[in-house]
Simulated scan of single mutants.
Amino acid sequence: MVEKHIKSLLYDHDCVIIPEFGGLIARYVPACINPVKHTLSPPSKKIAFNEKLVLNDGLLISTIAHYNRITKDEAQQRVAEFVHKAKSDLQQEKRFELSDIGIFRYNAERRLVFEHTEADNMLEESFGLPELSARPVKVQEPAVLRTLIRERQQELVEEKQPLRRRIKRAYNLAAGLALAGLSVSAFYFLSLQDNYNLSSLSPVAAFTSTGFSNPAVAEPNRYTADYVPFTEEERTGYYAQLLPTAIEAQEGNEFDPAGTSIASGVVVDGFESEEVVQEATAPAEVVEEAAPAHIIYTKDGRSYLISGGYARLENAEHYRETLLEAGHEEVNILLPQPGSRLFRVALADFETPEEAQEALNNYKQKFGETLWVLNN
């Protein structure tokens, strides 16, 4: 009951004294802004407490007697009971609360301390004014400036994309050149090896040959109905052109059709010498050297163990000499067969393919896994 009258008096008065307890003082507080909460508070009253104001000014007791229609003695008795209860709570619970006004406590020095509770705004001029929340205002550029900024950003993005394409294109070109350089270097170092076996690189044999086939001349197709293979005479005549021939003929003499040498008369000191007719020496016969024994240029029905294939006969001869120096006695060279341009070097020959297959494993242990059987 007493708390209700104290609160109503604080709306109209700046000071309300509670006899034998202390005085509540209301002071004006202007409108303020909370920078943390971003709030705007209207003007209000803030309540303070002074424990030295204990003398009874009659305001509180008169108000209680008037509103409750009781005597001042009864009103003073009610105030005394309220003060006794407040002091008892402070002694036992160390705190005493006035509803919607504040809280009383004892500090470490045993002095009474009051904390105002901002529940209601007791300033009548601020009646109905709420606390306002103000959100921070974002600084924005004008619409024209924003449009220009977006256009500039789009231009920058478009400029970056071609640059990335150029960088990617240059990277791909550099990678291709590096790969091509490595491939050329590998083939170059392989070509430096004289005894390198080209049979293991049969897919590349066409590119390592001395020349390429003329694309305008179509090679015969063995699978067509009108295909006519080369005859034995044609093959023999073609390979004979590749083999060395020696034609020795006597030079410096003039021969007549009858086979006699004619020396014309010579005038010496005014006398003409007699004609001398001598029998002419028989002309040297054109001798065609036979093919070396180690060169096989015809089909003989035998099976050969092939160690390597070479595009030039000189290279095949060089490889054969290397094998002979290594201690291998029988090394033959097979001339190219129809459809092939390689001169094949054979380590051994057998009558039947079965015998060649049986001996193949033994030769592989010595000459490598690239050996294979050719049925001539």
Results as ranks from 00 to 15, higher is better:
Thr352Asn: 05
Pro35Thr: 11
Phe187Arg: 02
Lys85Tyr: 10
His5Met: 14
Asp57Met: 08
Leu374Met: 12
Ser303Tyr: 03
Ile101Tyr: 05
Leu59Ser: 03
Phe271Thr: 13
Thr117Gln: 14
Arg69Trp: 01
Gln153Leu: 12
Asn195Ala: 10
Cys15Glu: 15
Gly23His: 09
Ala108Glu: 08
Lys87Trp: 09
Pro283Thr: 12
Ile47Met: 13
Leu242Arg: 07
Glu325His: 07
Leu163Asn: 01
Phe343Arg: 04
Thr281Val: 13
Leu98Asn: 02
Pro283Trp: 03
Arg166Cys: 06
Ala258Ser: 14
Ala284Thr: 13
Val345Ala: 01
Glu74Asp: 11
Val266Arg: 09
Leu53Pro: 05
Gly176Phe: 14
Gly23Thr: 11
Glu289Ile: 02
Ala346Asn: 04
Tyr188Thr: 09
Leu148Pro: 00
Pro229Asn: 07
Leu182His: 01
Gln76Thr: 10
Phe104Tyr: 06
Ala218Glu: 14
Ala180Phe: 13
Ala280Asp: 01
Leu179His: 05
Val79Asp: 01
Tyr28Met: 12
Glu158Lys: 11
Lys4Tyr: 12
Thr117Ile: 12
Leu148Glu: 06
Val54Pro: 00
Gln77Asn: 15
Val287Tyr: 04
Ala359His: 07
Asn221Gly: 13
His294Met: 02
Gly309His: 02
Thr298Asp: 05
Glu274Asp: 12
Ala170Cys: 06
Ile25Val: 15
Glu109Gln: 15
Ala108Gln: 11
Ala86Cys: 08
Asn197Ile: 06
Phe21Tyr: 03
Leu59Cys: 03
Ala311Gly: 07
Asp256Pro: 01
Arg235Ala: 01
Phe189His: 08
Leu60Tyr: 04
Val36Ser: 08
Glu272Arg: 13
Ser126His: 05
Tyr67Asp: 15
Ala225Pro: 06
Arg78Asp: 10
Ile167Phe: 08
Asn172Asp: 07
Ala174Met: 14
Pro162Met: 07
Lys37His: 10
Thr281Gln: 11
Leu335Arg: 00
Asp57His: 01
Arg320Thr: 10
Ser8Tyr: 10
Phe343Pro: 01
Leu313His: 00
Ile18Leu: 10
Ala186Trp: 15
Ser307Trp: 03
Asn195Met: 03
Asn362Pro: 00
Asp89Gln: 10
Asp14Lys: 13
Leu179Ala: 15
Ile17Ala: 03
Asn195Ile: 05
Ala205Gln: 13
Leu324Glu: 11
Phe271Asp: 01
Gly181Phe: 06
Ser202Val: 15
Ala108Cys: 01
Leu129Arg: 07
Arg164Gly: 01
Val16Thr: 05
Arg165Thr: 12
Gly270Ala: 02
Ile33Ala: 05
Asn107Pro: 06
Asn214Pro: 02
Phe255Cys: 03
Ala326Phe: 11
Lys160Gly: 02
Pro136Val: 10
Lys94Met: 05
Ala240Arg: 14
His318Trp: 00
Ala356Phe: 02
His38Gln: 12
Ala311Asp: 10
Ser183Ile: 15
Leu40Arg: 08
Leu112Cys: 09
Arg95Asn: 09
Glu354Val: 13
Arg165Ala: 10
Lys4Ile: 03
